[in-house]
Write a protein that binds this DNA or RNA. Structure first.
Lengths: 141, 141
DNA sequence: CTGCCTGCAAAATCTTTGCATAATT
DNA sequence: AATTATGCAAAGATTTTGCAGGCAG
């Protein structure tokens, strides 16, 4: 998917305009990896202090609609956004230490096939977050 | 786990008190299947109109701590609580029609084994929600 | 009785919206 | 010049907290 390269063109095709805010938000998400709207705002403000939080929200929505970013829920509160330029990955979140491990979607292939067959359900693995306990926090077995 | 049968005893063991509000909230969650705090409040109020929303929040937290209910995120906003008395199941949520399909955790055994081996991660399948597209909403294949 | 619980109201978060102004095309 | 996008402030929605009185144990 090359949407990333010509995203500016994609914007215009849909009748949207290219603004500094939109560039800043997208690059902040790229840079941060995983970030809440609030964290994106902070990052953006390091480069341009006058950007408003509501613009960040509106822009994240827009970028998501265009398929340039995605969001998942790594904590109970606050969605976290990440770029679709980085390879798709599943988030494994440790309930204790809050660590986030990125897993290869290929590890979920068997599951995907099964859910498809069993329920006719087409899972969106890119959006998936699995909660649990990481190696460090597991009760020593 | 028979925690469910003697949950009242469990409460006391931990030094908590048995109140009508707590009974009402627990039975509402049992009855509703999946419900947001707000929906739980409505259900509870059908039986006792004076219960307050903050009590519902506090009670759901407590019941979750005791392992009598659990919550997941079926939508972007609002957690939904469900009883642990019903058999564990994974939620498959359709992004289009919002339908919720309950899947058997056994379907995830292979995945669990793999995550354990690959990442030392112990997934909490009971908390899992998989987003995607249900049979009805999939582009006709 | 003692101290946990609850209801109430206010505060705290997080997100969305209306509107006038600024900026893109 | 025509419109979309932004900043600002206020409104919404959801959840949490402080407190005084009520109730379980």
């Amino acid at each position: 998917m090359t949407a990333r390269e010509d995203w500016q063109e994609l914007l215009r095709e849909k009748g949207y305009r290219l603004t500094p805010q939109r560039e800043l938000v997208l690059s902040a998400v790229d840079r941060l990896g995983h970030a809440t709207p609030d964290e994106v705002l902070s990052a953006v403000r390091e480069q341009s202090s006058a950007v408003n939080i509501s613009t960040v929200y509106r822009t994240l929505d827009l970028l998501e609609e265009l398929g340039l970013v995605r969001h998942t829920h790594l904590t109970d509160r606050a969605p976290t956004y990440h770029s679709t330029a980085t390879p798709q990955h599943v988030h494994l979140v440790c309930r204790d230490c809050r660590a986030v491990i990125d897993a290869d979607p290929a590890e979920f292939d068997t599951l995907v096939a099964r859910l498809r067959k069993q329920h006719g359900f087409e899972p969106d693995i890119g959006h998936l977050t699995v909660f649990g306990r990481c190696a460090d926090c597991r009760p020593e077995s």
